[in-house]
Design a protein around this nucleic acid. Structure first.
Lengths: 338, 338
DNA sequence: ATATTCTCTGTGAACGCTCCCAGAGTAACC
DNA sequence: GGTTACTCTGGGAGCGTTCACAGAGAATAT
């Protein structure tokens, strides 16, 4: 008959109870700050906890309470964008602020492969989180349908087509694109083009349609180029291509500030003056916008609020309250590039 | 006497066993892919799982196995840096790649307040992760000592002073700074200054001392300015200050590429040509370096490998293998800014 | 033919916690 | 002085797993 356990066990609630000369139940009450504990018992337990070095085992607790007090934030971005997209950081911090205040732990899970996708789905299914915020899932993203199937309270940042029934928080990309395009046209530009990006996402597609609608009859499909990602590199290539197609182009709507920054570099290297020869506007009002010379006119996207609101939507569901999709306002920030 | 439970319970392993006409043990064996289960039993169980919609409860599993197969990546960055520092994304993806292959889930926890700090410590203590990678903890960071006290396998990216006994992976900031400063001096510059940042971290401090050592007797403390963060804004301010102090300055070592980009903007707006009038070098070889005109000479920091190696150090500890601190190589990338 | 090994299945005993109920003691009310 | 309420404590039951062991039957070796 071997000794029951050699492993140096971590202290459990029973060890604390023994050390304090009280029962498991009382220790639990102290640990959870419940009522109906005498002062003497409380200090005895706190003493014992310190003495034996007790820390609560979350797995055991979660098992019986059926909750984890953690919310996942799932980031599904193409590799390179994780570095370039400044919105993600803001969304993350916004969500964290809300959840932190509600005493929930935000855990970020990134998906960078199919394998990750499956593992993350398992993580959600296993009950390790009470809810999930999904950032920038694209159309027909497997994680989107997995989330719905699992039935965990969730909210999307952005509105991926094909998941109509799940709560989301988004901005009116189309309306904002229309507004800024109209203002760009209002500066007297005649040949206005667009460097579109990420057309497989609502954000990219809607910015394009807003642009098209704004120009109406003046829309010229040959002045639109399209790239998969919102990157500086896309701006470089896109601008080069547009100049090749139409050297007299005098207005550019770039799908994001990073794209606009790339485009501006090409414009200036080609000897064109911004905004005198060519006007250019971006989208996001990220830190990019302040780094170009001249500074960018752009659409301010409330990334922090997107994160906050998404978190609130998830919390509402957890609490059994109704939670409806929300569209947040954007504003045009008019600087010097157009 | 009310019915035992109204709540629509999720299916458990027992429900599966009943549906399959087999025992709990056999179901468990199938779920975990163990040997010694007949083909008939296997398909019967798989069938039953699909029928009742069973998913394993991770809390119960973690409780008995005493592991979670998850590793935390703790990001403790000042608010604004989460957007600007491109290294973080690479570190994250590098760590994720290694852990994913080993079938561990990476969970990122961000610390943005003292409250977060405590909650994250609780999360680690609670056994919800089997290990932790800590990114960019500063000197005397409470989370650093918490990690040591908790005794969870861990590794630091970077080497915060004051935590000598924990494994870390870092680059030789001092040596790299010395090398690139020497090469900058080798281009014939006479008045070389530095825009230092983040001196409360090993990276910032070591880059400064490397710079000082490289210049030896030619080091001039009045040509060094210091800012708390590695930002574009620090580059702007720092360069303005240096030009005020010494208009004839002709060489700049910026503590990071973002800082260098800010500095270059100021230099060019002041009418100085880079590299003809002033040579400038950065640090990181981030995407910033390719965005400036001329492109930056800089030190290539293997951010992806830092993440990978840190993850490997943690896995080694979990497996009971020795894990020792590592210093990764950097290389100088010589472009056109100096 | 017997002993040995291997395959397959079932079941009790944890894992460490919270929940709930019972019960003892004390205080408050009429 | 008896009912009623409130405070405090202890301990059984159960959360959903895995693990270890026992044992039955089939295959292989002696």
């Amino acid at each position: 008959m071997p000794p029951p356990r050699i492993r140096n066990r971590r202290a459990t609630i029973n060890d604390v109870a023994a050390a304090a000369g009280l029962s498991r139940g009382t220790v639990s009450r102290v640990v959870n700050g419940e009522r109906y504990v005498s002062d003497g018992a409380k200090t005895a337990v706190e003493d014992a906890i310190a003495r034996v070095g007790y820390v609560r085992n979350s797995a055991a607790r979660n098992l019986v309470t059926r909750e984890s007090r953690a919310i996942a934030l799932i980031i599904h971005e193409p590799h390179s964008l994780l570095f370039e997209d400044p919105n993600i950081g803001s969304i993350l911090l916004g969500a964290n602020a809300v959840l932190s205040k509600a005493d929930y732990q935000l855990v970020s899970l990134i998906i960078d492969s199919d394998r990750d996708s499956r593992r993350v789905a398992d993580y959600l299914r296993g009950g390790l989180v009470d809810g999930a915020v999904i950032v920038s899932a694209r159309a027909s993203d497997p994680i989107a349908s997995a989330v719905r199937d699992i039935g965990v309270p969730s909210a999307f940042v952005g509105h991926p087509p094909g998941t109509p029934d799940l709560p989301y928080v988004a901005i009116d990309n189309k309306g904002a694109a229309r507004t800024i395009t109209e203002r760009l046209a209002g500066t007297g530009r005649q040949r206005i083009g667009m460097i579109a990006s990420a057309m497989d996402r609502d954000s990219g597609y809607d910015r394009f349609t807003g642009f098209r609608d704004a120009l109406g009859a003046r829309f010229d499909a040959s002045l639109v180029v399209e790239y998969p990602l919102y990157t500086y590199a896309a701006g470089i290539e896109g601008m080069q291509e547009l100049l090749r197609r139409c050297p007299e182009i005098d207005g550019i709507f770039a799908a994001s500030d990073a794209v606009a920054a790339g485009a501006m570099t090409v414009l200036q290297e080609s000897g064109r003056r911004v905004p005198d020869d060519v006007g250019i506007v971006g989208f996001d009002d990220s830190s990019w916008a302040l780094r170009t010379r001249p500074q960018l006119s752009t659409v301010k996207q409330p990334a922090d609020s997107l994160g906050r609101t998404a978190a609130e939507l998830v919390l509402a569901q957890i609490r059994g309250l109704p939670s409806v999709a929300q569209v947040l306002d954007t504003t045009v920030v008019w600087r010097d590039s157009a």
